[in-house]
């Protein structure tokens, strides 16, 4: 992920495509396609984690069950944070399309705040679980749960770090093509995380509390 952006950096800062053979017909949206391929590989990581969770979902080893430890109202609030952040990112994209820097910055900042709220609530949930003794070491179910939801949370964390970096880049250089491309890539990343969360809240939380 970071490597892809770094090479793109070098490319645009020089203003020259030194490594491209002239006349070579390269795909227009090479970066976007490449980033999409990265997301697809990320998808496979989550597939493995989902499969692990699916296998271990009922292996409580005498520990607490999903029904006992999951607080659905908390999950509902978290879901709405992430869903709202998806549409605020959409607003940022629209502002960027209209070449309005201030609006783009504003909506990206709102998106970052919603992402941070999501992460805060998730950390609170983890803290609460560990506090009541439902640690990853307790049972196969909890190991798989922390691995899956934790990996998603880490992605959101990196998404926020990227968002903040992008805010500074936009502030410094404005809506240059390189920045626009970055905003596009992050939009795919951000919406992709929301897609994964749809799987998480349905498969882990909603199905987890069913008796």
């Amino acid at each position: 992920m970071s490597e892809a952006t770094m090479t793109a950096d070098v490319k645009t800062q020089d203003g020259q495509l030194e490594f491209l053979v002239k006349g070579d017909h390269h795909p227009q949206n090479g970066t976007l396609l490449g980033f999409w391929l990265y997301l697809m590989s990320d998808c496979l990581i989550f597939a493995a984690l989902f499969a692990t969770y699916g296998v271990l979902a009922r292996s409580y080893a005498g520990g607490p069950t999903g029904m006992e430890v999951f607080d659905l109202s908390l999950v509902a609030i978290n879901t709405s944070f992430l869903l709202l952040s998806s549409i605020t990112y959409g607003f940022a994209m629209l502002q960027m399309q209209a070449n309005r820097l201030k609006g783009t910055l504003f909506w990206l900042a709102i998106t970052a705040l919603l992402g941070a709220a999501f992460l805060g609530l998730e950390l609170y949930e983890f803290y609460h679980l560990i506090h009541i003794g439902a640690t990853p070491q307790t049972s196969g179910f909890l190991t798989a749960f922390f691995a899956l939801v934790g990996t998603h949370g880490l992605h959101v964390l990196f998404g926020i770090v990227w968002l903040v970096t992008l805010l500074f880049q936009l502030k410094k250089h404005g809506l240059i093509p390189a920045n626009k491309r970055r905003v596009f890539c992050l939009s795919m990343f951000w919406h992709f995380l929301d897609v994964v969360w749809v799987g998480v809240f349905t498969y882990v939380y909603l199905m987890g509390v069913l008796p």
């Binding site: 645009t12 203003g15 495509l17 976007l32 994209m93 629209l94 399309q97 626009k180 491309r181 596009f184």
Partner: peptide, 15 residues
């Protein structure tokens, strides 16, 4: 070059 590149990179989907 940059300009040419700009033009190329009216990229991404129209939203």
């Amino acid at each position: 070059h940059t300009h040419d590149h700009d033009h190329h990179e009216a990229e991404g989907p129209h939203v």
